[in-house]
Design a protein around this nucleic acid. Structure first.
Lengths: 224, 224
DNA sequence: AAAACAGGTTAACAATTTGATAATATACAA
DNA sequence: TTGTATATTATCAAATTGTTAACCTGTTTT
């Protein structure tokens, strides 16, 4: 799982799009853009961004509609969404936030403040995940890329490690093959069907511990 | 953990304090107040609120100082903090957010917007789990793909599971055969007439519990 | 009562999924 | 460059799951 945050900006004004994109890229974010509502949904599905910045008034679907549509889909249930709109009336702001957005900013906005807001949102989001996972006698250090089991250090290859870390991040939860592919391999790369299996097998082999269960027709889950 | 969220408001203007307190209480929040920075820290330590709303210009310690001090303590590392200030200059807002606050609001603010913002923050924090369905003695965990009945774990195949989860998502509602086909099988696939029946049968068999009722000529419903 | 109908049951078969292994490709370090 | 570790694909057997067909049961309609 890449550490660089991906941001999708949707706005029909090319100037805004460019300015915002520029500033976010300077800060080190990966940016994709969309010129209207429908394109926003498309791009969101394709890139699975960590944050979506939506203009409200756009051709096709407006930002609030886009937000509604995305929030209905499990894949975007927890995605950060900010509105960035020229509409500054209370009713719209309230509606925007109640649609499930995380913030509502009004144009014009200083790049500095936008950046600070974006950083603040990611800061809050990241507090939720801890780099050190402890499950029973098993320790997974996502920062150091080290697995420990009963004080034995186990070396996993990169993909193996990321796959195990993902599964172990929610013990008991069944991860669908699609989820695994998106999280470990990303949306860009397309790998064959058997790739996951082979990695699972290698993990089982190296760990020598029955902790990954196959749920046929569904996916895999981690459980000690 | 109590379900009622506790909010600490710190402001030296009694009017603001009262208005904000009033509106938050209406919404069902538990509110404690402080009239200055030092009192805010005291109250925070005493009540461990879920959210702290800080004025910036206050006698004693100002809001940013308070935020700094609290963030250094593990107990308040993850506490939600919002600034609510009359200072609307960019520098202060940036400094406020970089101090570790989650939002920066400027006075005057409409109570409605404040409430919406507060709700939005809690919504994000709670990442509520709607993956767990509880109906009487039956538990359906959509995330773990596990069915539990009277502490017996029941293994269902994927289609069986999805079919049951669908029916159980709205107990009492009769699902038409068409609805079931669309939700469980999707619109692309075309399957024969008896397919649903057979799956229903398998579920009844495995659950050994009379919870799926046939509504002749219409469809099926789930009811305990 | 016979015919028509809706759903239930069973068994057989088809399709899919997975685990294992081997072969090949790629990345990276010595 | 070579060698090694890692990543991906291919293949195939085994197991599981999904679907269909045929028949059964009960109910409603004529």
């Amino acid at each position: 799982m890449s550490n660089v945050k991906k941001i999708l900006i949707a706005d029909d004004e090319p100037d805004i799009l460019e300015i915002v994109q520029f500033n976010l890229q300077i800060e080190g974010y990966e940016v994709v853009t969309a010129k209207n509502g429908n394109e926003a949904i498309e791009q969101a599905k394709k890139h699975l961004p960590d944050l979506i910045i939506l203009d409200i008034m756009m051709p096709g679907k407006n930002g609030i509609e886009v937000c509604n549509i995305l929030r209905l889909q499990p894949a975007f249930k927890d995605t950060l969404i900010i509105f960035l709109s020229a509409l500054s009336d209370e009713a719209t702001e309230v509606r925007g936030l109640e649609t499930g957005a995380d913030d509502y900013l009004t144009k014009p906005i200083s790049p500095k403040i936008l950046l600070t807001k974006v950083n603040a949102l990611f800061r809050r989001l990241n507090k939720e995940d801890n780099s050190l996972l402890q499950i029973g006698d098993l320790t997974i250090d996502r920062e150091k890329y080290i697995i420990n089991y009963l004080s034995n250090e186990i070396i996993l290859a990169r993909k193996e490690f990321e796959l195990l870390a993902l599964l172990a991040s929610k013990p008991g939860k069944v991860f669908l093959r699609n989820e695994i592919l998106n999280q470990v391999w990303g949306t860009e790369v397309i790998v064959g069907d058997r790739t996951i299996d082979v990695h699972i097998r290698k993990i089982r082999q190296k760990l020598n511990l029955d902790c990954i269960t196959t749920v046929k027709g569904v996916g895999y889950k981690f459980e000690l």
